[in-house]
Design a protein around this nucleic acid. Structure first.
Lengths: 185, 185
DNA sequence: AATCTAATTTGATATGTATCGAATTAGATT
DNA sequence: AATCTAATTCGATACATATCAAATTAGATT
């Protein structure tokens, strides 16, 4: 999931961890050596290495007293190639509620009975409300202007504005000059 | 410098900012819309967008009341291609003191007069100390074993061990069976 | 000009985390 | 087996930051 991606970026968003990566790109080092080179305590370096190994960037090899860490260049290349891949971009959005905006507008602008308190002045909000209102019409069925007004009056007294905006935003179509209205798919 | 790289990773190491990038990869959104979609306050989203625009990933375009943000895909691709480039790896290491380890070992193992308290048992430490000791010899000049021992005695009474280790680690060379010693470049 | 509205900035808070020192563990050397 | 040594883990602390609410700003609509 996206947790992995976040862990990856978090692991790399620290100056000392970037230095560790840069050093290990030159040659393997033990924890103690890294601690001296970075002027940190071994426990701190151990903590950093643990984060880097969690994302698979480094691994350890025991050598006598020492735990020698090395950079896994293959992982490095693989990661950098697909960080912003389509999958990753899509994955980060997967749990976003796509209808949240329309739902909030409906919540903000309607009463319990479904009628509109006001007609939004802002375009984006108006559009969301119109998407809500247009559901009162069946798809592909033809309505006379009188019938359209009757249905729209359940939402707001200014049926003329609603009707005009529905057509303006392309949510409903009108035939020729004064013909019928219908809702397309 | 490396500050830029850290800012880049920090900007991306947050779940909501990744979601914003994912959403903007589909289409531009206003701050308010993003706030609703992510279930955050507008001020928080503004804060996130500010971080993303600092690294050049997003930019804003004014549209009526709204500030519509869009993803700069070119920057996205460019960044992902050279994140772990040689320059970036080298840049993160630029202010690391390469001699810090040897210096610490010298500090730990020598007295004020430069002589050794003990000869380190650990290989890496021994190597650092030997790199220090070998500086007492001129490069490419030939020394008799007797002369070598005399010089080494300034560092430690166990001249035989020092001499053997210097040769063992390749810091000094010896000709044939019992010939002279010399330090190579 | 006066009034809206969205966006940003600011201040406060709560959570996260880099760092250290101390204690413990794992493992090699003697 | 006993003793070192490096590495790791744990607990505490200080600094960073994600979030919200309130105040301010910028800009468009009327």
């Amino acid at each position: 999931m996206s947790e992995e991606l976040i862990a990856f970026f978090k692991a790399l968003s620290d100056a000392n961890r970037l230095k560790i990566i840069g050093l290990l790109a030159q040659q393997p080092y033990s924890v103690e050596e890294l601690a001296v080179l970075l002027d940190l305590k071994a426990s701190t370096v151990s903590h950093h290495l643990s984060k880097l190994s969690q994302i698979g960037l480094v691994s350890a090899r025991a050598d006598s007293y020492y735990n020698v860490y090395q950079l896994d260049e293959k992982v490095l290349e693989a990661k950098s190639r697909n960080i912003f891949s389509q999958e990753n971009l899509a994955a980060s959005v997967v749990d976003v509620d796509a209808g949240a905006y329309d739902n909030k507008m409906i919540k903000d602008y309607t009463r319990k009975d479904g009628s509109l308190k006001t007609i939004p002045a802002q375009r984006k909000k108006l559009e969301a409300i119109l998407r809500y209102v247009v559901k009162a019409f069946e798809v592909n069925k033809r309505y006379s202007e009188k019938k359209v007004n009757e249905i729209l009056s359940r939402y707001h007294e200014d049926t003329a504005s609603l009707r005009r905006e529905l057509v303006g935003f392309g949510l409903m179509k009108r035939e020729g000059g004064g013909g019928d209205y219908w809702r397309e798919s």
